[in-house]
């Protein structure tokens, strides 16, 4: 069995503010290697996995993620993703992946019009991805969200398609794992909290697993996402 550390490239855009939470989760909690990737660079420095962290890249100007997607580093991330490399976008990172067209759909403002900063429950819908392979099918994770635009939208026909292709990875649910309207914090279509591309190597989710990776942070449920990535890369 290989014991070498895996390298996580964490992209920093102007306005990223969860990058250091990711460094901490990957390095201190998971004991893996990290490398910061500046948005103006284009070298991924041999990273095994790319994380697009949360925050407010470019001040959320125009639309969330709309300007960040044109950063030089994103060209390399797109190439890496198309070659099958695992890419995970968290919160604003998810929004950037949508704008970049690496994931289908778009984000609308939360139906409640409020910025929601709270713990939510999400149900793991697909365990056959690099990001969820350590989860049990239907496992409920308690992870925080913090966003104003997490209301996932896609045309009905496209929604049927991603449903059928098992591209819905996480859904907001109650503590028993039932996706109810009450457990949906932002009005997201089908209670969607996270989706993948068709190949499954690109995933975006609104909740922040890096903020819930240690019991001292009141939940360590998010750690399983990072464990899954390491397990995938070690195989």
């Amino acid at each position: 069995m290989k014991t070498s550390k895996k390298k996580f490239g964490i992209v920093i855009f102007p306005g990223s503010n969860c990058d250091h939470d990711c460094f901490h989760a990957v390095e201190s909690v998971m004991g893996q290697q990290t490398v910061p990737l500046w948005h103006k660079d284009s070298d991924l420095q041999g990273a095994d996995c790319i994380i697009l962290p949360g925050g407010f890249s470019y001040g959320d100007y125009l639309r969330t993620g709309a300007i960040a997607r044109f950063s030089p580093i994103m060209k390399s991330v797109e190439k890496f993703a198309k070659a099958g490399g695992p890419v995970i976008g968290i919160c604003n990172g998810f929004q950037i992946l949508l704008e970049a067209g690496l994931l289908p759909g778009a984000m609308l403002r939360n139906t409640c019009l409020q910025f929601r900063c709270q713990y939510v429950n999400i149900r793991v819908e697909n365990t056959d991805t690099p990001f969820t392979n350590c989860c049990q099918p239907g496992q409920v994770l308690r992870i925080p969200i913090a966003h104003g635009e997490g209301n996932y939208f896609v045309e009905e026909s496209q929604y049927q398609k991603i449903n059928r292709a098992n591209q819905v990875i996480f859904r907001y649910c109650d503590e028993f794992g039932i996706p109810t309207p009450e457990s949906n914090p932002n009005g997201s279509l089908g209670n969607i909290a996270g989706i993948s591309n068709k190949a499954g190597n690109v995933v975006g989710l609104m909740p922040h697993p890096e903020r819930a990776s240690e019991t001292i942070l009141s939940s360590a449920d998010g750690k399983i996402i990072f464990e899954s990535i390491v397990s995938y890369l070690t195989k």
């Binding site: 125009l62 709309a66 949508l98 704008e99 778009a106 609308l108 939208f153």
Partner: peptide, 8 residues
């Protein structure tokens, strides 16, 4: 390319 998002 930038100003509008054709999905929404």
């Amino acid at each position: 390319q930038l100003l509008s998002n054709p999905v929404i």
